[in-house]
Write a protein that binds this DNA or RNA. Structure first.
Lengths: 190, 190
DNA sequence: TGTACATCAGTGAACGCGCGTTCACTGATGTAC
DNA sequence: TGTACATCAGTGAACGCGCGTTCACTGATGTAC
């Protein structure tokens, strides 16, 4: 099996982290076992500890990686407020709601991260800082103080809205929450 | 042990539900085992299935109970907008952030509820409806349509803010998020 | 009033299973000669 | 260029443990006589 070039192991490690991000967002961190995670990456359970010290170690790396990807996504948007509006509409869409595995790690895992150890929370904290800075930069660059406050409002309202929409079994109610959430998010962008 | 009066079993069942609410909010649903839950209620694991069909059955009952308590709390507030402001300040306080076991079930469990089965999501949906109605009734009773939208905004922003503050390992950053969250929540009350 | 008994809330050991983790082993690789 | 070998990514069985669930049993109760 081992077909190792120079960076072969790093590539495998990155594949484990990426697939684990998907699985965690689908089934939760507690709900995802090592065997399943390794099988998702096309490997068997025993290889796990050649790449990570423990499950906690993996979790911290996955959280850091997921938040990094989230920040990178902002780079692909139209510049300024227009890009942010596009982002909000995609974020609060039925498609995003119904596909958590490919979606925002914060919406999928925020309360679980709050119960994690220091390593994971440190990784999350660093990522959250970067996201809020990205959002603030697009809001009112001429007034950084107010932009930061609005960025926090925008971020928390879209995360809370998406989570709520996923917890509602009544589709119509859930759709209403998403649509109203877009309007609520826009109040932080004016 | 059995000292059973008429409603003895109902009282025990209610005690299990109440203590399980506390435990779930502390350790998560997946993170709380039946033996621990029963021990919290002063019982042993075997008695569990005399009260509930399954863990899922308990979870649905706990979610319904927790949301009911949350709604009842609104009745103890000062009337109108003033009461709502008191509520928001208490909700977005370091004390609430640092004591999830005694706090809001939505902030502690929302993304996990999104991954639960229909029974639990139905219970949550009913409870969320009641909470949003309570909030809307205090906002602008003369304009129910706009009140409902604002209630959704208020609810999602305080839930998202509290969850975010719990996931940040940097105390100062976390405090900033809480304080800004109060201002952001107030924008939905004007 | 005192005793025998059916009721049933609760006990605690056991079930099979999947968890996170360990470890002896495999076998394809790049390197040495 | 061809062969022997050290490296090491990955295998897969096993560890002890706690999970959700089952079940034969206990013993205090309220009731019957």
């Amino acid at each position: 099996m081992a077909r190792y070039t120079k960076e072969h192991k790093q590539v495998t490690r990155q594949r484990i982290i990426e697939r684990a991000g998907h699985r965690f967002k689908l089934d939760g961190i507690d709900g995802s076992g090592i065997s399943t995670l390794m099988s998702d990456a096309g490997l068997t359970n025993g290889a796990f500890y050649a790449h990570f010290e423990s499950k906690d170690d993996l979790v911290a790396n996955v959280v850091a990686d997921q938040l990094r990807r989230q920040v990178e996504r902002y780079g692909t948007l139209r510049p300024g407020r227009e890009g942010l509006e596009d982002f909000v509409r995609g974020y609060l869409s039925p498609k995003h709601r119904d596909n958590p595995g490919d979606g925002c790690p914060t919406a999928a895992l925020l309360d679980e991260i709050g119960r994690c150890g220091d390593g994971t929370k440190d990784a999350y904290t660093e990522g959250a800082r970067a996201i809020l800075e990205e959002l603030a930069a697009r809001l009112t660059p001429e007034d950084p103080q107010s932009a930061r406050g609005k960025a926090i409002g925008l971020f928390t309202v879209i995360v809370g809205t998406l989570q709520l929409s996923r917890a509602l079994s009544d589709r119509q109610f859930s759709d209403e929450v998403l649509e109203q959430g877009i309007e609520n998010a826009l109040t932080f962008m004016h």
